[in-house]
């Protein structure tokens, strides 16, 4: 219904990203998401560059989490939720796939676009190892043998900087880990299936400062290898971990720019008001 108007407003909002030369791994075009009849985000057009960290900031209730959940079709799992518009995932060979196309299956989409949530969500009935291997069971390149699974689990845990802490108790319950360890476990679980993109929804909001720092370091290490989108309410965190930042307000994309530029010389007055702490 709102496709037309959302496309135009999206085109306006995307003005700031024309100078990006990098390939865009994931790009939304005129994305509008509804809860029932109320639109939570309107006409968002935003590109996410390959092998980099993109941060999304904004005051709470601005729709940044909703937008993130639209990027791997998680938004529609809520009853009464609906999405208009396109999200294009570009493969390495240049082929572009609209994840909202009729032929696209949300389950298959999510295998390529992983997600980590605000609160750690280890599966309580599974051991640490099985938690990390949980996604392998449903991916095409899933492990065929227990040995291969062990290798993948170790690799994922090493990449998530958790291996040294848990290598001696892989078969014990994942709920016994600390909050920060649980969150890194969830990151390892998302990494294990080798997704194209990882979406993180305020991954450190429920963690202590030390755990937060570890996760931020982790994002730095992963930056060169994969495409990451992180939603955060913490501007300092966005400044620390991301190379590009997008600012959301009241369900609209106000501005997107390289992080340094957005924080030092924002082009929109509302962005400036937000980053200087005048609201939010």
């Amino acid at each position: 219904m709102a496709t037309n108007s959302s496309l135009t407003s999206g085109a306006l909002a995307s003005g700031g990203q024309h100078h990006v030369t990098d390939i865009q791994r994931l790009a939304s075009e005129g994305l509008t998401a509804y809860f029932g009849s109320a639109a939570a985000i309107r006409g968002i057009t935003l590109g996410v560059p390959d092998r980099s960290v993109t941060a999304i900031i904004g005051p709470s209730g601005c729709g940044k989490s909703t937008f993130l959940r639209c990027l791997n079709r998680m938004h529609e799992t809520i009853q009464g939720a609906r999405v208009d518009g396109r999200v294009v995932l570009t493969a390495r060979d240049g082929k572009a796939l609209d994840i909202y196309a009729k032929s696209a299956n949300p389950i298959a989409v999510r295998k390529h676009i992983g997600m980590v949530f605000q609160r750690p969500t280890p599966f309580p009935t599974m051991s640490i190892r099985d938690n990390v291997a949980a996604g392998l069971k449903v991916t095409a390149n899933g492990a065929s043998t227990p040995r291969r699974t062990d290798e993948i689990v170790e690799r994922a845990l090493r990449r998530a900087a958790l291996w040294e802490e848990v290598k001696d108790r892989l078969r014990t319950s994942a709920v016994a880990l600390s909050g920060g360890q649980q969150q890194r476990l969830c990151i390892a679980r998302a990494l294990a299936t080798e997704p194209e993109v990882i979406l993180l929804d305020e991954p450190t909001a429920s963690l202590d400062p030390i755990s937060t720092q570890r996760i931020e370091e982790l994002l730095h290490e992963l930056e060169g290898e994969m495409t990451i989108v992180v939603v955060t309410h913490n501007m300092q965190q966005a400044a620390r971990v991301s190379s590009r930042t997008a600012f959301f307000l009241n369900g609209e994309l106000i501005e997107t720019a390289p992080t340094r530029q957005l924080f030092t010389s924002p082009s929109d007055s509302r962005t400036e008001a937000y980053i200087t702490g005048r609201f939010g």
């Binding site: 799992t77 295998k111 949530f117 599966f123 996604g135 449903v138 679980r189 998302a190």
Partner: peptide, 24 residues
């Protein structure tokens, strides 16, 4: 959150329901 975590891993609804929700 557990259900969502499974769905986000690419679990289908039935698999989420039987292997995550019912198991928990």
């Amino acid at each position: 959150a557990l259900r969502e975590a499974a769905l986000a891993l690419g679990y289908s609804k039935w698999r989420t329901s039987l292997t995550i929700v019912v198991r928990t």
